[in-house]
């Protein structure tokens, strides 16, 4: 609470001077007292946690528990919903991104997002990947090609599509489409990537490929994934947060959450007693 008020005063007194937050270097984002409202509905309640750098953090919980909403707050995609309201702080790079002055364009290029439904733009594969760079003003074809190649390689898709970069991306299979979306997100080199149930509409084999990819990506990026499959969280994540009815019930090492949960509710959920 104290941090909050001082922060506000600082902003009032001197808007240009940044408040220094005392955050360890292995934390990409610090969330404190975060609340989110759809109109009158409080969808996320008083969540505080640290997202660790170069780790996979999984958000689990039954559907409607607010994990997606919480995830979408990191790059402020919730702004697209009418009647939204944020409270509290999410600090990334020494800045409260929930601040009204936050430049959403910069924020969103720093924090990428992959959505539940594979949504390649109905264009060629090359244009899909190059889009993020093009809007930033990179016109040089060689550079663009390099970016396309690198991003596709990083997403493990280069071998599959390098001979048909000028085909429509919508003609690929579901798993490939999702990896196109991941490559597209990688093309602008974000620091943190949000995955909103990336495997919910995929078959088990594609899911497997994408899970491998996520583990691999965590070497260079901070990964946050919201998933309704707790097995997926157990397989790939380092940290796990269990949310229920908008509240953060427990947040700890994945191993601890799944082996020795501190809360009864968490245990009930992961042992399949509800949800």
């Amino acid at each position: 609470m104290q941090v909050k008020t001082t922060h506000r005063n600082k902003v009032k007194n001197d808007a240009n001077q940044e408040k220094e937050y005392d955050i360890p270097s292995d934390v990409t984002a610090r969330v404190s007292d975060f609340n989110f409202y759809y109109g009158d509905l409080r969808a996320v309640k008083d969540v505080s946690l640290d997202i660790k750098k170069n780790k996979i953090t999984a958000l689990i919980g039954p559907s409607g528990c607010g994990k997606s909403t919480f995830l979408r707050s990191f790059n402020r995609m919730n702004d697209e919903i009418p009647g939204f309201k944020y409270e509290g702080e999410i600090i990334i790079d020494n800045r409260n991104i929930l601040d009204k002055k936050t430049d959403l364009i910069k924020l969103r290029s720093k924090i990428g997002m992959v959505f539940q439904k594979p949504t390649p733009f109905p264009q060629t594969i090359r244009k899909n990947i190059a889009y993020g760079s093009k809007i930033r003003g990179i016109r040089n074809k060689q550079q663009l090609n390099k970016i396309v190649e690198f991003s596709l390689k990083r997403a493990g898709l280069w071998g599959e599509v390098n001979d048909r970069l000028d085909d429509l991306a919508t003609q690929l299979s579901g798993g490939q489409q999702q990896r196109i979306c991941i490559a597209r997100t990688l093309s602008v080199w974000p620091e943190m990537i949000l995955f909103d149930e990336p495997c919910a509409s995929l078959d088990p084999i594609s899911t497997n490929v994408i899970e491998d990819l996520l583990v691999d990506l965590a070497k260079d990026y901070t990964v946050v994934i919201a998933t309704h499959s707790m097995h997926q969280a157990a397989r790939i994540s380092n940290m796990t947060a269990f949310m229920y009815m908008g509240e953060l019930i427990e947040y700890d090492n994945t191993k601890k959450i799944f082996e020795k949960p501190a809360q009864k509710l968490t245990e009930d959920y992961i042992t399949g007693r509800f949800g």
């Binding site: 995609m77 697209e80 959403l104 364009i105 969103r108 290029s109 959505f115 949504t119 889009y131 993020g132």
Partner: peptide
């Protein structure tokens, strides 16, 4: 055009007008 397409563009850091114009 489905909303998710525009959301994807926004998540890549395009401005609102760019997301409308390009998609």
């Amino acid at each position: 055009v489905p909303l998710t397409i525009r959301h994807n563009a926004l998540a890549l850091g395009s401005t609102k007008w760019e997301s409308i114009k390009d998609h």
